[in-house]
């Protein structure tokens, strides 16, 4: 089984047409579906949040069969993720793409479950603690993109499940969860 780091690649990763944007609609729809799933799986396993179209992205080329995606193909596959709400363009030029392998809503729920499981209701955590603290180690929250985390926390705040308050510097914003 072929691997990319510790990521296990599916067999069709060696299928050359997988790397050519298919012109026939029905075939392309299948191809796009497979790429969307693979991109999300890969980003989740590698905890990647941002794909830059300008830079090499390991998933977008296969040296073994000497194939790589064209710029157009990359944009088509990422746009399909954007369309589904699983990604967002970070600039107007579509050069960087934020991958949401969990939607903001799902992140909010995930945080809520994490808080409940660890008995952290009514306690205070800093944002940095969530991203790199001991408590979140081994969970999806470890290393979470700051922007994504903040949006999830704001969503919780809107629902009255959390309160964000500013500390003395930007680094130590805190959040108080409520049950």
């Amino acid at each position: 089984m072929q691997r990319l780091g510790d990521f296990r690649l599916p067999p069709f990763f060696n299928y050359p047409p997988y790397f050519t944007l298919q012109p026939v609609r029905e075939t392309r729809e299948k191809q796009v579906q497979l790429w969307k799933d693979l991109i999300l799986d890969y980003c989740r396993s590698q905890k990647l949040y941002i794909i830059s179209l300008e830079e090499d992205f390991p998933l977008f080329s296969n040296p073994k069969i000497e194939r790589s995606l064209s710029h157009e193909a990359k944009e088509v596959f990422l746009a399909a993720l954007v369309y589904e709400g699983r990604a967002e363009w970070m600039d107007k030029g579509h050069k960087k793409c934020l991958i949401l392998w969990l939607r903001i809503q799902d992140w909010a729920n995930y945080i809520l479950n994490f808080v409940k499981d660890n008995g952290l209701e009514d306690s205070v955590m800093t944002v940095e603690e969530i991203r790199s603290g001991i408590e979140t180690r081994g969970t999806e929250l470890a290393g979470i993109d700051r922007g994504v985390l903040m949006r999830a926390l704001k969503l919780l705040e809107q629902k009255g499940k959390a309160a964000i308050f500013k500390g003395t510097s930007a680094d130590d914003e805190g959040v108080k969860f409520s049950a």
Partner: peptide
């Protein structure tokens, strides 16, 4: 389906219909 590479245009039997997106590791 097609494969465009520096070697030119080649065609492969279409496997896209055969692959189950829900189960891509277990063909």
């Amino acid at each position: 389906c097609r494969d465009v590479s520096p070697d030119g245009l080649r065609f492969y039997i279409n496997l896209f219909n055969e692959i189950d997106p829900q189960n891509m590791y277990m063909p």
